[in-house]
């Protein structure tokens, strides 16, 4: 008997999925409804934005916040 589950399909690359799984584990599985594979999972609709935000935060920390190179330099216009 097939079942339908309402939710949000989330697709990303494996490293990001690792982060998502980590966040989900640390908060008692409060985000993910169904883990499918290392690129796909189904997430609770109300939690998507929160999850995205946390992934971003985690990523910023991982990549180091100080990599903001000064790409606004435009010397020959000055």
């Amino acid at each position: 008997m097939p079942k339908a589950v309402k939710g949000v399909l989330l697709q990303c690359d494996p490293p990001q999925m690792a982060m998502i799984l980590k966040i989900n584990r640390e908060s008692n599985n409060s985000y993910i409804i169904e883990e499918i594979n290392d690129r796909t999972c189904v997430v609770k609709e109300a939690k998507v934005d929160e999850l995205k935000h946390r992934v971003k935060q985690l990523m910023d920390v991982a990549m180091g916040a100080g990599d903001e190179e000064d790409d606004d330099q435009d010397s020959d216009l000055d």
Partner: peptide, 10 residues
């Protein structure tokens, strides 16, 4: 991350 709202059938 790409997301789509909808239903999973399983």
């Amino acid at each position: 991350i790409v997301t789509h709202t909808g239903y999973l059938l399983k």
